[in-house]
Design a protein around this nucleic acid. Structure first.
Lengths: 221, 221
DNA sequence: AGTTCAGTGATGCGT
DNA sequence: ACGCATCGCTGAACT
């Protein structure tokens, strides 16, 4: 019963049992096991990006004979190793953080720059992450009325609409005149219909370059 | 310029550039690169479960000198290798599928068994995935009225509520008397408030074992 | 610790 | 293909 702390990769013929939030059994096979220094554990099959089984950082691993057992809170992964095919410790693994651009936040900054053109009226103030009891509004633009804006970096869908409608319910409660907007590069047909039915608007916006506004009525898809 | 098809793991001192839906640069360091036979690519740092950079199945990889370039549609990852620390091909990697239990679908089956006790009235029919223009209802139970049931395997949140409310809007349109339910092992405080305001109900249900029903009024959290 | 939300979400299932 | 919903989602930020 030995505690294992160092990060390693292990390619082995093994079987896996998981129990916790859910349960799973994995029949014996050749799988790739990756264990990081923070406790993160991933067991990968031959395809797909997501691991077959996994455990988040904080898990503690011990070895008991030919079994590797990783535990975290009420969750356990038990790896029964039948044959080690490849094993390596990874020294001096870097933990640099990655910097991503073209996120939703970047898009919001673009929208703020062109806000008057997008909503079609003079705006005196823009507030990011405006707090309501039903969640925080991505962007609130104040002009002759409030513009409640939900931003999506990709294609907006029905869930995006209901998220917007949830915020609007609050402004209705406090009897504040508002227009609800979704601003995104694209929107699904169902979401667009839902917007129309609720008298909400969509403005097509793009990352970094141009922004073009349309009312639901004028847009085709 | 050599095309690479075989799965491998590579631990190397390298830098990464990604461009596609978003953009990122990763400063030189020691990273673990995993490439699967279906094209899936993952570049892992020293911690966390999620890769720093990645590409889904279908990506094509070529080698150009000390660069590995993986492309898929409009997305490119370029790995500039400065020093190979460890390299291995993975032979006979298994692609067995994993079978998970205690999913939302399992919970739904439990609920169907106890449906009359949960909704508190005789039920003549239960329909899974009942289709509405606003999406498919997890479970529809028909008694003296309709019971529209949204099921969550974990803790229900505000998004769960708005999802339910979206379905209910349809039944209101067709003037069908309904009661809206969320059934889940737990629910967040904000979601519970939102339910109450909209005269909807929550029933606490558990995986596999017992089910206990409560009205929003009676529940504490 | 709890809650909310973004994500290069990914993945599966339907149309 | 697109649309939609789940995920043992993970991770981050804020309370």
């Amino acid at each position: 019963m030995i505690r294992i702390d160092r990060p390693f990769i292990l390619y082995a013929y093994c079987s896996i049992r998981y129990s916790g939030r859910a349960k799973s059994d994995l029949v014996p096979g050749n799988y790739l096991i990756i264990r990081k220094g923070d406790g993160a554990l991933m067991i990968h099959g031959a395809d797909k990006m997501v691991p077959l089984n996994y455990q988040p950082p904080g898990a503690v691993m011990i070895r008991k004979g030919n079994k590797l057992i990783s535990k975290r809170k009420d969750e356990t992964i038990e790896i029964t190793i039948r044959l080690i095919l490849h094993l390596a410790e990874l020294h001096l693994w870097s933990s640099n953080k990655i910097k991503i651009s073209m996120t939703e936040d970047d898009l919001r900054n673009e929208i703020v720059k062109r806000i008057e053109k997008l909503v079609g009226e003079p705006i005196t103030e823009t507030i990011k992450e405006f707090i309501t009891p039903y969640g925080n509004v991505d962007l609130l633009a104040v002009g002759s009325r409030y513009h409640v804006i939900e931003i999506k970096r990709g294609k907006a869908n029905m869930a995006s609409c209901t998220q917007l409608m949830r915020y609007l319910a609050y402004f209705k409660e406090i009897k504040q005149e508002t227009t609800g907007w979704i601003m995104s590069p694209a929107i699904t047909a169902g979401a667009f219909d839902l917007l129309q039915k609720n008298d909400l608007r969509w403005a097509q916006v793009h990352h970094a370059t141009s922004c073009k506004a349309e009312t639901p009525r004028g847009a085709s898809s």
